[in-house]
Design a protein around this nucleic acid. Structure first.
Lengths: 289, 289
DNA sequence: AACAATTACGGAATCCGTAAAAATT
DNA sequence: AATTTTTACGGATTCCGTAATTGTT
């Protein structure tokens, strides 16, 4: 059985090219690496190096072994982190999402639940959702699409509906709803982290300009002291920081189909019983409008 | 970094259920396993076991860790074997196939080549072909279908064409070729190991009976002292053992499309230069008929 | 002269087995 | 009484660093 530290030395050597630099990188002495690579060759029963008095290089087999060792080391590392993640997931039910809106509601729920609930502050691309669940980095992922695999299942929660907040004297505000087309060419204040909504507004509103703000505090300040329109959804009300009573804008829902997203909760089938009360709470507090 | 022997002990324990049996299975003493599992918990920083004075059981995390460890150990094992296989493949070009016919020709080639060529005696299902190549267990796989992946490529070699050897006095022998339909209900002597041909004849010949023989020697003997028809192909001539001059049967090619198979040579793109002369030899010796 | 790899030697850490203890079935 | 786990102790293996050697650039 090959010892991991030998694989580590091999991988390091394949990157540095000399035993001296390898030793330096691993914080050991040269003789240690020399002996290590000799032992690795001996354990495998294979020649990995071409040796000259002052120079040592990988053979073709050695390069292949280093390539395989790199992957194996990554999996080795993943083992520890996954075990620890699983252990953590047993005590804390972690919720993440691909959109900010559902996370706001989730945070609300978390405060009124006796269970240990952790709601992440950042969100991930939807193509990482499956990985987050199977590696137990999250127990619940809120997404705009269903995820169906042999070990995963999804449950529909409700819809997130986009609205735009316009200055009350703008002519587009003289109707109960608007369309993306009617927002053509306008400039919007947008928070940097709005997940999948970003591609929606960029795709649907022609020739629009988006002033992305990284800091939520800066976003609030600029909205207060300017007339730029900004977006919100039916889930924005759960944002504890967005309470701006002195807003001169009016909220106008967007009629387009693309302005609505169905939200699903995805989780491991093995966790079905654990997430059940959380799903019930999310559905119970989902706004009707 | 988790030591492999600790993972091995965990995997063994998850199967045996007690430390005593685990120790027995691994040929070590109980205290060794006790300390090992304590160290594993310590290294991972996670509780894997529920301990009672006379009983130790896996926690949920422990079961999950054992599951992950099982897979990791398999990959760990695969590392060594793959490095050794790669090393071996550098000196010996190994050819395998999904059909016996192309292998016969390959053996012929191997004798007239200066290069170190190894031709396997058994053949594998076609769905294992990709794995054989990527794990370097074979450098060349002869199959009836093309294999196309980012790292693999296939080259057409020729066709293998099925024929049936009938007693010269049978009425079906009164024509230059026959069809599968005309063989309806007959009984055939067939070698057990004929690869993908087996499903062809079973599917195409209605109500036929197949007398499968495991031993080639028994097959030859029965063909000699009986009148049962048997199959051969345009590649059978390369079989050094099948030279039976005193055969009372006549060879009749089968007309159906299903009685012909295109044969491709698949290999890693990285091996293209190495296999080039072998492919040329295979194509050069491929029979025209 | 500087650098890279290897070998030799001694110390330190670790891992194992034997023996003994504690507790359960 | 037999089985299972755990701890204690001593020995043996192994792994590492320092020092010295060899050979190259």
């Amino acid at each position: 059985m090959i010892e991991p530290y030998l694989l580590e030395e091999l991988v390091a050597f394949s990157r540095t090219g000399t035993l001296a630099k390898t030793a330096q990188q691993l914080h050991v002495t040269q003789p240690t690496v020399t002996r290590g690579m000799q032992k690795l060759e001996d354990d495998l029963g294979v020649q990995l190096f071409d040796r000259q008095p002052n120079r040592i290089t990988l053979t073709a087999t050695g390069r292949h072994a280093a390539e395989l060792a790199t992957r194996l080391m990554a999996q080795h590392q993943a083992f520890s982190t996954q075990v620890q993640a699983f252990d953590h997931a047993q005590r804390v039910l972690t919720i993440t999402a691909t959109l900010p809106g559902p996370l706001l509601l989730a945070r609300q729920i978390a405060q009124h639940t006796d269970q240990a609930l952790s709601v992440t502050t950042t969100f991930s691309p939807i193509d990482q959702a499956t990985d987050l669940l199977t590696t137990h980095q999250a127990t619940l992922v809120l997404t705009q699409r269903e995820l169906q695999t042999p070990t995963l299942e999804s449950r529909y929660l409700g819809r997130e509906k986009l609205a735009v907040n316009l200055d009350q004297f703008m002519y587009q505000a003289n109707q109960t709803t608007v369309t993306f087309a009617e927002l053509r060419g306008m400039s919007f204040l947008v928070l940097q982290d709005i997940g999948s909504w970003r591609e929606v507004i960029q795709r649907e509103i022609p020739q629009a300009k988006f002033l992305y703000q990284t800091q939520p505090s800066a976003f609030r300040e600029i909205t207060t002291y300017s007339d730029f329109p900004y977006f919100s959804t039916n889930l924005s009300r759960f944002d504890p920081h967005v309470a701006t009573p002195t807003d001169h804008r009016v909220r106008r829902p967007i009629r387009d189909a693309a302005a609505q997203m169905p939200i699903y909760a995805s989780y491991l089938k093995a966790d079905r019983q654990r997430v059940k009360p959380v799903l019930a709470a999310l559905r119970a507090h989902w706004p009707d409008d």
